[in-house]
Design a binder for these strands. Structure first.
Lengths: 244, 244
DNA sequence: CGCGTTCTTGACCCATATCAAAAAGCGTGG
DNA sequence: CCACGCTTTTTGATATGGGTCAAGAACGCG
């Protein structure tokens, strides 16, 4: 079963990837008080890589994708943000990735200058942001591992499990998840092509690990098998990855 | 020529990746005063993923590799740290990657509890650590882009340019860099095999972009061409990466 | 000088990208 | 509610880059 690991586990190898979102804390809550959300249309950018960072944002509704480009257009989707997630916790002079609404979305924001001032008086706030950034870094490293070393099946398994963990579905065991992003984004996130994403999903369906309906909604039928897949254990004795 | 970008440039697409290291600042300097360095032998671990984080470290000498594993041993090298770099700026309860000396190395450290106390009194210190962590995150995302979307030639180009930038060689234009890590580490860093790393390096040699001697030392003959390679521009019109 | 280790080179092959087309959704207007 | 057209996704056929396997060469160290 999925466990939503509130407290970290003392498990060295299978380090639970901390989620990138920082759900409301009292310190952060204060920040937005009385700020009316900004509405974004599908495809609209919050900011682009290289822009000066003016604000810290919180996603109120919708899904935001963060990404970087190579000059010739190849794209790496860094991550997806959902309701309650923060954007821009780095607090640097400029953004090093772009943020764009996938569907319609809404955000609220505070100027970074305000955040900085508050943080000076109230170190706990800064610690909080620091911890959020640390989770983000861990997630980035985790994705690196997936992209650099896992095959498509493992990458998809990781992606789906991570998504499921972020939407703690109370109770119901065949976990339902909604893909609020198109295949192209998933492909660019996992370093694959959309064709491979599609083929791999149908492969997972055939193995009865998941079930997909209407393209964007997925039921996880066998969470344990999926989690095993993440680490590549199923293939009984994967080639021989001997080292040193 | 290589420029060591002290101040960020307003260049949207070709965002300079901030270096992960934080060279000495007054605030940080104070931390280690009077701490005698810990010596590490080749291959020795500073800590492993999952260990509790007890200290914040600074590399005094040598090279440290940071990495994560999949259960079956596949490894992703997150990054390499050199003299002056900090390890453990996340300040979380446990490490989510392992840190290991490549050759002989030495570190000095401060307990995280001490860092936390100081940070409460002296917010600037925490801001400093936060900025370091932000650079680390940016580097991780940059590597993701390379691993997910670049071919071996581009990945090596990025790796070499990044290395050269971290060792600001005063003056001398054919920039000399030393690979303080074996091919296996480079491969595991870039998501390649050692064979591909080797072949790609000789390919770069044949193109007269670099020159390598005694396996571990490299001269960059044509910095501009290398930088162009990073973004994949040389191939005059790479397939067609059309997107939206 | 000799041995173990690291790196390079070569031959082969397979997983995944590419190219191409069909199918399934989805919104819109009648 | 259905028909139409556009977009997204799936499926199929083929090609190829980089992985795998296997020597051999270069190095470094005692």
């Amino acid at each position: 079963m999925f466990s939503v690991p509130a407290a970290p586990r003392p498990d060295a190898e299978n380090s639970e990837l901390p989620e990138r979102d920082a759900r409301p804390s009292r310190d952060l809550q204060k920040l937005w008080e009385g700020n009316s959300p900004r509405l974004l249309k599908a495809g609209q950018h919050v900011f682009r890589a290289g822009d000066a960072q003016l604000d810290l944002y919180e996603v109120v509704s919708g899904t935001i994708r963060l990404y970087r480009n190579l000059k010739d257009g190849r794209r790496q989707v860094i991550g997806f943000l959902f309701t309650g997630d923060l954007i821009g916790v780095e607090l640097q002079s400029q953004h090093f990735y772009s943020a764009q609404a996938i569907g319609a979305a809404s955000l609220r924001s505070v100027p970074v200058t305000t955040v900085r001032e508050l943080a000076f008086e109230q170190p706990r706030l800064l610690f909080e942001l620091h911890a959020t950034l640390a989770r983000e870094t861990a997630a980035a490293q985790d994705l690196m591992l997936a992209i650099g070393r896992a095959d498509p099946e493992e990458r998809l398994a990781r992606f789906l499990v991570a998504l499921a963990r972020r939407n703690p579905q109370p109770g119901r065991d065949p976990v339902a998840i909604v893909l609020s992003m198109p295949r192209r984004d998933i492909a660019d996130h996992l370093g694959l092509t959309i064709e491979t994403v599609s083929r791999t999903l149908t492969k997972l369906v055939k193995q009865r690990l998941i079930k997909l309906s209407r393209r964007r909604s997925i039921q996880i039928l066998d969470p344990d098998a999926l989690e095993a897949l993440m680490e590549g254990l199923p293939r009984v004795a994967r080639r021989r990855r001997g080292r040193r």
